[in-house]
Design a protein around this nucleic acid. Structure first.
Lengths: 136, 136
DNA sequence: ATCCTACGATGGACTCAGTCCAAGTCAAGA
DNA sequence: TCTTGACTTGGACTGAGTCCATCGTAGGAT
């Protein structure tokens, strides 16, 4: 993840201990934490970090395209650091676990012109839902 | 929509003026109102209807499978009465307008077994995003 | 190495969406 | 028409997220 920190510095980010810790917490595969979970894990390393700072930093990471916001349920948004490899999500209806998945085919091609209502379609999000092995 | 009211009566619903008004407000194609919008429109016809009743009624309609909950942004859930014809959604990133769309193909078939991580996949939601003709 | 200052952090108040609950009301079966 | 349990009400409450005035500090300038 230090490559992320390098990219951020290159983009003019002032590097603070808070931003470093938030970026470190978001490292890994199949990571989909809520803002409060990020705050809790960040506070393990930096006890005085505030919720506002976590929200600010997550928002900046999202607008820089380094992190993706995922809203799979109606509850808290989740933050997915796997932003540089396009992917979709598989969500367990039982426990809420989320996996990144790579479907074959191009879902955009499945939307015929007469179904586009004059829109310029730019992006497709696919959410697969079902029960995971433990909840099955 | 009176067929909906008949179905509900058949399922043992006690028919109240509040429930009738909520069901009527949710009539039509490409309808995707938030709970507060449903409440506002219901209150035009029945000024004393409470928010709690609107939430209760929407929740019941959802669990009866008559209405679908849609969470296309991180904000308020939207309620889609078009529950008996499977469809996906096309959302304008500018103004938030939502259209029901019917893509070709079966997105479930695009998720290979080695991408299912032991899940029993039951359902797929697809959200197309872009700019509508007015926002383009 | 030190100073400056604009950018970032803080925490508490606030908003918005939604839930909960005790008390009152009323639809519909007897 | 009576009765009763299902339904409605409004207000308090929760959870997620935003806003803002103030304080602190990273990092360029000297």
């Amino acid at each position: 993840m230090s490559d992320l920190l390098h990219r951020l510095r290159g983009r003019g980010w002032r590097m603070t201990s808070q931003r470093r810790v938030v970026a470190e917490v978001l490292d890994g595969d199949h990571v989909h934490l809520t803002a409060d979970e990020v705050h809790a894990r960040a506070a393990d390393r930096l006890p005085e970090i505030s919720r506002a700072t976590v929200y600010n930093t997550l928002g900046e990471l999202v607008s820089l395209g380094e992190v993706i916001e995922v809203a799979t349920d109606g509850r808290a948004k989740r933050y997915d650091p796997n932003a540089h490899r396009p992917h979709q999500h598989l969500v367990c209806s039982g426990c809420g676990t989320i996996r990144d998945v790579h479907p074959t085919g191009d879902p955009l091609a499945d939307l015929p012109p007469d179904q586009r209502f004059g829109f310029t379609v730019a992006q497709v999000e696919v959410t697969y839902r079902g029960l995971c092995a433990s909840c099955g």
